[in-house]
Lab assay of single mutants.
Amino acid sequence: MAAGGDHGSPDSYRSPLASRYASPEMCFVFSDRYKFRTWRQLWLWLAEAEQTLGLPITDEQIQEMKSNLENIDFKMAAEEEKRLRHDVMAHVHTFGHCCPKAAGIIHLGATSCYVGDNTDLIILRNALDLLLPKLARVISRLADFAKERASLPTLGFTHFQPAQLTTVGKRCCLWIQDLCMDLQNLKRVRDDLRFRGVKGTTGTQASFLQLFEGDDHKVEQLDKMVTEKAGFKRAFIITGQTYTRKVDIEVLSVLASLGASVHKICTDIRLLANLKEMEEPFEKQQIGSSAMPYKRNPMRSERCCSLARHLMTLVMDPLQTASVQWFERTLDDSANRRICLAEAFLTADTILNTLQNISEGLVVYPKVIERRIRQELPFMATENIIMAMVKAGGSRQDCHEKIRVLSQQAASVVKQEGGDNDLIERIQVDAYFSPIHSQLDHLLDPSSFTGRASQQVQRFLEEEVYPLLKPYESVMKVKAELCL
């Protein structure tokens, strides 16, 4: 049975990233139509530049190519590739079939990587351009969430054990800070992308030097003109047959890092959902379990974690691919890159769409948070109580021993009897502590235990987050809708 299948058929496997999760716009960027249309555009740009620099290419040939950029006979191309065992030459023939007058000058002087690699770089750039505003929107939604809850005390956790208090907004800023680093890295790697350009079979530009009869300047002009037509500021000066596969490492490393950030955020949300302090959106008709109707599973956060793990592992592909590119190139890269580049971007696209949807509907339960604080705060307040007693004339050592005994009794009630923490009640009825009984409410005010959390939130948002989001103001209103 021949390899390949009808990918629109229910009898043929289709990647869930495309069929179930990723956005239509990201799927289109990695589609065959987008790819092969870009090949034709690159052939047109090459012909236009070659004509401008004096090669015998007519206006009629150029116009014929322009008129057929979208006229792609995919069936013919597939048949040609089956016959020739070469995808680029299959599309040269297919393009030439609908451009008979231009057929002889299509791909003039070029090698397969002229269309293959340059198209990949265009796709990487455009895919990054799709991700950047999506990530900015996630940051914006979380920034709104953090600002609104900047002063809401909550129990902090280290080692997932109760620690000092923080605020809900401050905790959210930990998430935002990681995503801001990801946004900066995505922008950097996007701006650092260079075009492969017009380089020939081993990167020496020998074929173009021959076409222009040894004119170095025209060869350099050709490279520059096509690079500018493709919208790049610069091209690699040095290439082998391909652009260095280190570029793929750079791009997928940034995406993998984004995956790590999203995994951490969504894990926190899942843990908070278990504590009943916070939940992701839950639709009115949504079913959490087929057997347990009360369940409210954090399905979206779980999906993000599941896909983020996949995204983090994909960076190993370009690392290994770059390491086995012998001399000017081997074909070890080809099949692998067809999979890992598309999957990385479709996965990143999915987790950003999902995280935006989550961040637009996060639900906080202040009463649950308050109750958990009441359970733990008495123990945390013991040092403040000791200091207040010393100020009232008591002995630190005597007070410490009193607190120690009462704390152990209260802990026994919590752990052995399943009761509430009654340390404060014990202190309130103990005559030894009568000098500070009137101060206990103040000493137990949760806001006095959150330090500068709310001020940190305000400063972080104003100095770091809002300036970073400013270039994306025009796209901030787009909502994230999930079908599944």
Rank of each mutant, 00 (worst) to 15 (best):
A2D: 08
A3R: 15
G4E: 15
D6E: 15
R14K: 14
S15E: 10
A22P: 09
P24L: 12
P24R: 12
E25G: 11
M26E: 00
V29P: 02
S31R: 03
R37K: 13
T38W: 02
W43Y: 03
A49S: 12
E50K: 03
T52R: 10
E60D: 14
Q63S: 13
E64P: 00
N68F: 08
A78R: 12
E80M: 11
E81I: 00
K82H: 12
R85V: 13
R85Q: 01
H86N: 00
H86W: 01
H86Y: 00
D87Y: 00
V92M: 09
F95D: 00
C98Q: 14
C99S: 12
G104T: 12
I106M: 07
I106V: 11
H107M: 01
S112L: 01
N118C: 10
L128K: 06
V138R: 01
R141Y: 14
F145L: 05
A146W: 06
E148S: 11
F157L: 08
T158C: 00
Q161P: 01
T166R: 03
G169S: 01
K170A: 02
I176M: 14
Q177H: 15
L179V: 10
M181E: 08
N185L: 06
R190D: 08
D192W: 10
V198N: 09
K199P: 00
K199V: 04
T202V: 07
Q205P: 00
A206S: 05
A206D: 00
F212I: 05
E213T: 14
H217D: 13
E220L: 09
Q221I: 08
L222T: 03
K224V: 10
E228T: 12
L252N: 12
V254T: 12
G259I: 00
C266Y: 05
D268V: 06
A273C: 14
A273E: 14
M278Q: 02
M278H: 05
E279D: 07
K284S: 08
K295Q: 04
E302F: 08
E302S: 00
M316E: 05
P318L: 01
Q325F: 12
A348L: 08
T350I: 14
I358W: 04
K367D: 07
E376S: 06
L377H: 05
T382A: 10
E383K: 00
A388T: 06
K391P: 01
G393V: 07
G394P: 07
G394F: 10
S395F: 06
R396A: 06
D398L: 14
E401T: 07
Q409S: 10
A410D: 10
A411F: 07
V414S: 04
N421F: 01
I424T: 11
Y432V: 07
Y432P: 04
H442I: 12
L443R: 03
L443H: 00
S448P: 10
F449V: 04
T450R: 04
V457H: 06
R459G: 13
F460N: 01
E463M: 06
E463S: 08
L468M: 15
L469F: 06
V475Y: 07
K479A: 15
